[in-house]
Deep mutational scan, measured.
Amino acid sequence: TLEEDLKKLQLSEFFDIFEKEKVDKEALALCTDRDLQEIGIPLGPRKKILNYFSTRKNS
């Protein structure tokens, strides 16, 4: 689940933002850096999230 993935990244504090915006794993895989910025995710966590999901998509 998205919540489990965020826990792996030690970013579970952002789960509420994704839940509020109705972003699940499938939607997050389609998000850009700009999308994450617009919903209030800071730069460092955005980079970690985007890297994590891009490596999952390619495997």
Results as ranks from 00 to 15, higher is better:
56 R>F: 09
15 F>T: 13
27 A>S: 09
56 R>I: 09
56 R>N: 06
50 L>Q: 04
23 V>I: 14
19 E>W: 03
28 L>H: 06
44 G>E: 15
32 T>K: 12
32 T>D: 08
29 A>H: 12
39 I>N: 06
18 F>S: 03
6 L>C: 00
19 E>R: 11
7 K>M: 03
16 D>P: 08
38 E>T: 10
45 P>H: 06
26 E>K: 15
23 V>M: 15
25 K>P: 10
1 T>Y: 13
43 L>I: 15
45 P>E: 14
23 V>K: 13
10 Q>Y: 07
37 Q>N: 05
43 L>C: 15
15 F>S: 12
59 S>N: 02
14 F>N: 07
13 E>G: 02
49 I>M: 09
7 K>F: 10
21 E>T: 14
47 K>C: 13
53 F>W: 04
24 D>F: 10
12 S>K: 10
6 L>I: 00
15 F>P: 02
27 A>H: 14
27 A>K: 15
7 K>N: 08
27 A>M: 15
29 A>M: 08
4 E>Y: 01
51 N>W: 04
39 I>M: 15
16 D>Q: 13
45 P>I: 11
29 A>L: 05
36 L>Q: 03
34 R>W: 10
19 E>Q: 12
55 T>Q: 11
16 D>Y: 03
11 L>W: 00
55 T>M: 13
12 S>D: 12
30 L>I: 15
45 P>C: 07
58 N>R: 05
44 G>V: 14
49 I>R: 03
34 R>N: 14
11 L>F: 00
14 F>E: 02
13 E>H: 14
26 E>N: 09
55 T>Y: 08
40 G>H: 02
23 V>D: 07
20 K>V: 03
37 Q>E: 14
34 R>K: 09
14 F>W: 07
32 T>Y: 04
59 S>T: 09
34 R>E: 15
43 L>G: 14
1 T>S: 06
54 S>H: 07
2 L>R: 01
45 P>L: 02
49 I>S: 10
33 D>A: 09
1 T>P: 00
52 Y>S: 08
34 R>T: 12
47 K>F: 01
51 N>F: 00
25 K>E: 14
32 T>N: 07
52 Y>V: 06
55 T>F: 03
37 Q>G: 12
58 N>P: 07
52 Y>P: 05
57 K>P: 11
39 I>A: 07
19 E>F: 09
10 Q>V: 01
24 D>T: 15
51 N>Y: 03
37 Q>T: 08
33 D>K: 02
47 K>Y: 02
58 N>V: 11
49 I>C: 05
24 D>R: 04
40 G>E: 02
48 K>D: 07
28 L>V: 12
44 G>A: 14
18 F>M: 06
7 K>V: 03
47 K>P: 01
39 I>D: 05
3 E>I: 05
4 E>F: 06
46 R>A: 15
22 K>L: 07
25 K>H: 13
53 F>D: 10
3 E>Q: 06
28 L>S: 07
23 V>L: 14
41 I>Y: 01
53 F>C: 10
58 N>C: 06
31 C>F: 15
30 L>S: 15
5 D>W: 12
23 V>F: 15
7 K>P: 01
3 E>K: 13
14 F>T: 02
22 K>T: 08
20 K>P: 02
58 N>K: 07
26 E>M: 09
36 L>G: 05
10 Q>P: 00
29 A>C: 06
43 L>E: 15
6 L>A: 00
7 K>I: 01
55 T>W: 05
20 K>G: 06
33 D>Q: 03
23 V>P: 04
3 E>P: 01
52 Y>H: 14
18 F>I: 08
31 C>S: 13
26 E>G: 14
48 K>I: 13
42 P>G: 02
37 Q>S: 07
58 N>G: 09
21 E>N: 14
46 R>D: 06
42 P>W: 00
54 S>L: 05
49 I>Q: 05
3 E>R: 06
18 F>H: 02
33 D>I: 01
25 K>T: 05
11 L>E: 00
36 L>D: 02
29 A>V: 03
27 A>N: 14
41 I>A: 03
15 F>G: 11
19 E>Y: 06
14 F>M: 11
21 E>I: 14
16 D>L: 05
20 K>M: 12
3 E>Y: 08
46 R>M: 03
14 F>D: 02
11 L>H: 01
51 N>E: 13
47 K>H: 04
58 N>Y: 09
38 E>D: 12
6 L>H: 01
38 E>H: 05
30 L>H: 14
15 F>A: 11
10 Q>F: 03
40 G>M: 02
46 R>N: 08
41 I>F: 00
45 P>N: 06
45 P>K: 05
50 L>G: 05
16 D>C: 09
59 S>F: 11
21 E>F: 15
29 A>P: 11
22 K>Q: 06
42 P>S: 02
52 Y>C: 03
12 S>C: 07
28 L>E: 08
45 P>T: 10
22 K>W: 01
44 G>L: 13
42 P>H: 00
35 D>G: 07
59 S>I: 13
7 K>G: 10
20 K>Y: 05
36 L>S: 05
1 T>N: 14
2 L>Y: 01
15 F>N: 12
55 T>N: 13
53 F>I: 09
33 D>H: 06
47 K>V: 09
51 N>G: 12
52 Y>N: 13
49 I>N: 02
38 E>C: 08
59 S>G: 08
35 D>R: 12
14 F>V: 02
21 E>L: 15
46 R>S: 10
31 C>G: 05
24 D>K: 08
34 R>D: 13
44 G>S: 13
29 A>Q: 04
46 R>E: 07
21 E>W: 14
41 I>T: 10
49 I>E: 10
42 P>L: 00
35 D>A: 05
22 K>R: 07
44 G>H: 13
4 E>D: 07
12 S>H: 12
37 Q>L: 04
28 L>C: 05
20 K>W: 02
21 E>S: 15
34 R>Y: 14
2 L>H: 01
13 E>V: 08
47 K>W: 04
51 N>C: 05
13 E>M: 08
26 E>Q: 09
35 D>K: 14
14 F>S: 02
47 K>M: 15
51 N>S: 13
18 F>C: 04
1 T>Q: 02
39 I>V: 10
19 E>C: 08
5 D>V: 04
31 C>M: 15
5 D>E: 13
27 A>G: 14
3 E>G: 02
4 E>R: 02
40 G>T: 01
38 E>A: 13
10 Q>T: 06
21 E>G: 12
7 K>R: 13
33 D>W: 02
55 T>P: 09
50 L>V: 09
40 G>L: 00
5 D>P: 00
15 F>H: 09
21 E>P: 06
27 A>Q: 15
10 Q>R: 06
33 D>R: 02
59 S>A: 06
53 F>Y: 10
47 K>G: 13
16 D>F: 11
33 D>G: 07
26 E>H: 13
40 G>F: 00
41 I>Q: 08
43 L>V: 15
57 K>H: 05
25 K>A: 10
44 G>R: 10
27 A>V: 12
38 E>L: 09
50 L>E: 06
3 E>C: 01
32 T>I: 00
41 I>G: 05
57 K>C: 06
2 L>Q: 01
25 K>D: 10
33 D>S: 06
28 L>T: 04
42 P>D: 06
28 L>F: 05
37 Q>I: 12
57 K>L: 07
24 D>A: 11
31 C>R: 07
37 Q>P: 00
11 L>A: 00
27 A>R: 15
55 T>C: 12
54 S>W: 03
19 E>A: 06
16 D>R: 12
22 K>Y: 12
55 T>H: 08
39 I>G: 06
24 D>L: 00
22 K>V: 03
15 F>C: 10
16 D>S: 10
6 L>E: 01
16 D>G: 09
5 D>F: 11
6 L>S: 01
12 S>N: 08
54 S>Q: 12
11 L>G: 00
30 L>R: 15
11 L>D: 01
43 L>D: 15
12 S>I: 11
37 Q>A: 12
49 I>P: 04
33 D>N: 04
35 D>M: 14
18 F>V: 03
36 L>W: 04
10 Q>M: 09
48 K>S: 09
27 A>W: 15
38 E>P: 00
